[in-house]
Design a protein around this nucleic acid. Sequence first.
DNA 1: TTGCTCCTCACGTCACGTGAGGTGGC
DNA 2: TTGCTCCTCACGTCACGTGAGGTGGC
Lengths: 159, 159
Amino acid sequence: MAEEKRLSLKEMVRGTGNTPRTIRFYESEGLIAPAGRTGGGHRVYAAGELDKLQLITDLRTAGLSIEEIKRILRAKLERDAPREAAVEVSGLLGAHIEEMRRKLATLVRLRDELSASTALLTEVCAECKEPPSEQMCDRCAVLDRGSLPRAFKWIWSVH
Amino acid sequence: MAEEKRLSLKEMVRGTGNTPRTIRFYESEGLIAPAGRTGGGHRVYAAGELDKLQLITDLRTAGLSIEEIKRILRAKLERDAPREAAVEVSGLLGAHIEEMRRKLATLVRLRDELSASTALLTEVCAECKEPPSEQMCDRCAVLDRGSLPRAFKWIWSVH
DNA sequence: TTGCTCCTCACGTCACGTGAGGTGGC
DNA sequence: TTGCTCCTCACGTCACGTGAGGTGGC
């Protein structure tokens, strides 16, 4: 047992960007634990817990649930072949990476459709001589609403 | 007023992949609304509400909050210049796109570090002649724990 | 000694999920 | 007519946030 450095809750907060409440919550869920307590009951952590908390934080930020993180942390204990554990964790991470890629693609598509809609509208409406009204716009042949991406027809509709 | 097609709740469910409960919840939040009710009180929607619900669904999936989506949907009404609305929405989408890119990068880094750790461990340990024990592994010079990514030291640690 | 932080309950919040008990519609 | 779906409360859940009331530590 080497003389490891000890960290306060405040140092755990500063080291990971979590709130104290979040760190205590992770403790109540069994994800991390202080090495002990000070005389007055303040938590004291081993230096290694900071790395563990940082991993947990990264996984939460990336959208993994507490239950999934529990599985990851238990992987090592259940099958004590670290290679198996790594394969299992890698699979979980890969699934989330794919999910994030899909979500990102959806957002990028929406932004691009929005840009296209805006470009079309400003171009067409700038050349329009009529005062804007629901009747005129609905009959506008140039501005065929079918050519607008479905997601952003609402930007255009007048009423 | 054209004779638009009317949709049932079930068709809204099938069209977007939401649960009925989620659709009713969005209605209670003022995001969507049925055009009317059937004799027995069942909701009836205008065809355009399906597009709106799909947009809401995409934005939720991508991580926007209900409040942010409300702002997006109100953008058109508050400033009735659609160009301004589009710029505002584009900014909101852009911010979320950046956030998703960061989260994705974190996940990819973790997976890569995990692969590197696994590769190192299997290579080193396969050549090891000693029976595995905490004492031996801790003194293993080849397996210098400093060379393992911090996030995945826990895979290795024996106790 | 003065603050700022820590402690433990315990209730609040966000975006729905999940029965409970009753009716509509193909 | 039989089911499957819809209706409206209303309580549950997940991952914390936010006071409430009291103590520790540089």
